[in-house]
Amino acid sequence: MEQRKRAETAASEPQIWLNSVNRKNKTALIEWMRHSNISLVQVNGQRMYGAPPPGWLGDAPPHGSEIFIGNLPQEIYEDTLIPLFQSVGKLYEFRLMMTFSGLNRGFAYARYSSRRVADQAIAQLGSYEIQPGFKMFVCRSTEKCELMLDGLPGFMDHTVLEDILVKMTTGVETVSLYASLTSDMKNMAIVKYNSHKAAALAKKSLCEGNRTMYGCLFTVDWLQQSVRMKLQSGMLAKPNFFLPQSYNKQVTPEKFTPNAVECLHLLCEKLKLGQPVYQIKFLRHGNCGWLRFSYWVQIPKHEVPFTGYAWLVGDKLIPTEKYQQAKEMVALRIMKELEKSWGPLFLNSGYSWS
């Protein structure tokens, strides 16, 4: 029954796609795919051919073999583009960036078998007029492979962060942790991927949904040149590490695993608010293992309950672990809200999570 449903869904997808704009060219593309026996796969806003193509033997092409193609008419597709770029040499991969309506976004990437063939494509097609008034812009792809995540919590160490990123994205090569350049007591990670495609897909996945990690909002961007220069010159500081003050006197940082639920418990006890009651409901899976959940938390002597939605990485966790991680995130959020409400009294209590 499940296989039948998937088959029916797959069969209906071309018709759904055709019912939107640019129907004539979409029909032509589907016919070309049938006759040429070429398969295209659409993932996260880009449609891909190859990687590797049929009959490819050996490793992927070296760095420098990818080109960037710009100034494309939005209504043309791979049935025009792939044969054109294959006329220069063997393609390992072709990626066309797509909009939700089914038009292309005006640019694409093509990876050839070698850097030499990529140079030939740049020379031959760099000013090719693909349609009247549309001269393509073709140059070597920068092939950015490094992302910068800023605003990460100071209590999350390198091992935990790397484990999260490996679960959320693919192609992670290295993860380096440094003190944030923009936020006190926060950290910044530089994540290197094994290809530009992997890094671009990771950037898109990380930017989707609620960008929080253990309750801290973080930003995702390509590694900036100014930060790269500081990295190369050794000017980036070691990562911050901070814990609630009440624990620092009792436990060494090496042995302490931060527990936001326990911190909130102690805080409510100190402020005489009563103990929190949690209600957490898991709603659905998101991309790359994200779990979306809603929460409702009542603290007896606080005027209104705390409610909202959040995400966590949890597709491989058992139910008790999912629930505990969700509570951790919610507890961090509540402490931030209490800090806003209670001000100096909160700070004097020895807990600060901003």
Rank of each mutant, 00 (worst) to 15 (best):
E2W: 06
Q3I: 00
A11N: 06
S12L: 08
E13I: 11
E13D: 07
P14N: 08
L18I: 12
R23H: 13
N25T: 14
N25C: 14
K26S: 13
A28Y: 11
L29D: 06
W32M: 09
L40Y: 11
Q42F: 04
R47D: 10
R47N: 11
M48Q: 10
P53N: 02
G55N: 00
W56V: 04
D59I: 04
D59N: 06
P61C: 06
S65N: 03
I67Y: 03
F68V: 06
F68P: 07
N71D: 04
L72D: 07
P73Q: 03
E78C: 07
D79G: 05
F85M: 02
F85H: 05
Q86R: 14
K90T: 14
E93S: 15
E93D: 12
L96V: 14
M98D: 14
S101M: 07
G102W: 11
F107Y: 15
Y112S: 08
A118P: 07
Q120S: 07
I122K: 00
A123S: 02
I130W: 04
P132D: 03
G133Q: 01
M136T: 03
F137T: 07
S141R: 03
S141F: 09
T142W: 06
T142P: 12
C145N: 11
E146D: 08
L149I: 05
G151A: 05
L152P: 09
F155I: 00
F155M: 01
T159L: 00
T159H: 01
E162Y: 00
D163Q: 01
L165H: 01
M168P: 00
G171I: 08
V172Y: 03
E173Y: 02
V175A: 02
S176Q: 04
S180L: 12
T182M: 08
S183Q: 13
D184R: 15
I190P: 12
V191F: 08
V191Q: 04
N194Q: 07
S195Q: 06
S195N: 09
S195M: 09
H196R: 07
A199Y: 07
A200R: 13
K203Y: 10
K204L: 12
C207A: 03
E208V: 01
N210K: 10
T212V: 02
M213Q: 03
Y214G: 01
Y214Q: 01
L217E: 14
F218V: 06
T219Q: 11
T219L: 08
V220R: 10
D221E: 15
D221F: 12
L223M: 15
Q224Y: 10
Q224C: 11
L231M: 06
Q232K: 08
L236H: 02
F242S: 14
L243A: 07
L243H: 04
T257E: 01
P258A: 00
A260P: 07
L264A: 03
E269A: 08
K270T: 14
K272Y: 11
G274K: 14
K281E: 09
F282R: 02
L283D: 05
H285N: 10
N287D: 13
R292C: 08
Y295C: 10
Y295I: 05
V297W: 13
V297C: 14
Q298N: 15
Q298L: 13
P300I: 09
P300Y: 12
K301G: 12
V304C: 13
P305R: 10
T307P: 05
T307V: 14
A310V: 00
W311V: 02
L312K: 00
E321G: 01
K327H: 05
E328F: 02
V330P: 10
V330Y: 09
M335Y: 13
E339I: 09
G343K: 15
P344S: 14
G350A: 10
G350P: 13
